[in-house]
Design a protein around this nucleic acid. Structure first.
Lengths: 251, 251
DNA sequence: CGCTGCCTTGATCTTCTTCAAAACGTGTGG
DNA sequence: CCACACGTTTTGAAGAAGATCAAGGCAGCG
């Protein structure tokens, strides 16, 4: 049993600031869920339509209200989608990993981005114009189908979140969030099931629509109960089962 | 200025229990957002794939957890999508009008329905098997595109709701909900901008994840302030501007 | 070492829920 | 047509969950 407080156990993002290589680009495009079934030559043909850009942690990629002209794909690093209230408070709607897309689901004729995209870690992002993407959709029908499946999946996730938000107490919601994050980002380590991304109390709070203080109190309690280990901007799950039990409480 | 309390001003649903006629079916299919661009003969070809069924208010159409085998379209009346907590509490995720679809977004290979569908008013529903629908998607690519746009729109709506839920006080959320409902169901009347569907305090509460009592108190206050008129299971908006102002409060 | 962010903890206050009871409207059956 | 019964709505009082306000502590970095 190692102690809780210590130097962060997180691994740094394996990205060189000089951006993703051409090989990496192809590899990423090939791996995209919605390009899954496409032949290699199609990928090669599509590749030049994308432009890549690097962002520092915290750097905005676009702002809510900007004209929605491009679709983005996370190549490396993590991106978060956020929405602000008038009073400056912010809510994190999604945390995106390599392979996830965001931005204009332009296909839909949405005129402006509904939320702000911000680099959460150092990251590399591929961008394609709305027209370019529409061309791909027209040319390769299976891509549209795959895209539909992904968007529908996100809708389900949002509705599940909505349901939970309205009915479950904070304790359950924090537990559920940690498990969800660990499933996407988890890494088995000495510390436990480590969530492989910098994660402040503020981040947690913003994802659940609660305050930093409440998030901190809840996590402290979890730690005292041996459910998690945590430190400055990192969290690891120590007892998956008990956490899952907490998450399922109705309230 | 008419008084608030009185016999319901709502119009009854114009549906005969003997279900929608064949003509009406074609008309509805033609009018569906995702069949919009399709030629008439395509509609006629598609038509036999649908089966129609009528439901009484409150009657379930399917339950969460049932195998997701069919896609449904509201032909007439209103349907609500709900999700239950273990403790029996329920949350209304969406209220669907004629032309809206629901059920298996089967395309997505979701194995079971994630929520329960229930007739909110007397209604008529068209159903198609998952395979039948996939056939249509394969045959008419524009349908997939249209569907994608609709699902993405719903995703945006869910995220907006999520954001609001986490940040705005109940008063604002009720105001916003009333405006949203009026935009979809509103009808100009002596009473004001009448929401054309039976709407109990419980319904309002379930849509927002609050209690009946809170919903009732908030609406009573609105009525005292002259923002709305209301009675047993109906609500009309009297002062759109002030309500909109309330809805936008950050908290 | 002394900043500058994070994180933690306590005390108080507000908002919403819970529990309880009464009033009202609607439709029903006499 | 009246009276009763049921479901909906309203209102009050007490309680709980989180928010807010206010310090203080700890880690990493210049």
């Amino acid at each position: 049993m190692s102690d809780d407080r210590r130097t962060t156990p997180l691994e740094p993002e394996p990205i060189e600031p000089q951006m993703c290589s051409v090989d990496l680009r192809l590899q990423i495009l090939r791996g995209l869920p919605f390009f899954a079934g496409l032949p290699d030559d199609a990928i090669t043909a599509i590749n030049p339509l994308f432009r890549e850009t690097g962002y520092e942690p915290g750097e905005p990629i676009y702002y809510a209200g900007d004209p929605a002209e491009r679709l983005f794909v996370v190549a490396a690093g993590k991106v978060k989608l956020i929405r602000h209230t008038l009073s400056g408070q912010e809510r994190v709607l999604d945390l995106l990993l390599p392979g996830d897309f965001f931005g204009s689901l332009p296909v839909l004729g949405e005129p402006v981005y509904p939320d702000t995209a911000q680099a959460h870690t150092l990251c590399c992002v591929l961008a394609i114009s709305a027209e370019g993407f529409e061309t791909i959709l027209d040319r390769y029908p299976p891509v549209t189908r795959a895209l539909l499946a992904i968007v529908a999946e996100r809708l389900r996730a949002a509705q599940a979140m909505l349901h939970q938000t309205g009915t479950a107490p904070v304790e359950s919601r924090v537990a559920a969030l940690l498990l969800k994050l660990a499933e996407r980002l988890g890494d088995e380590r000495a510390e436990g099931w480590l969530i492989q991304t910098p994660l402040s109390r503020q981040d947690i709070a913003d994802m659940l629509g609660i305050t930093v203080e409440t998030a901190s109190r809840t996590l402290s309690q979890f730690r005292k109960d041996g459910l998690i280990r945590s430190g400055r901007r990192w969290i690891a799950i120590a007892d998956r089962e008990r956490l899952a039990a907490l998450a399922e409480q109705a309230g």
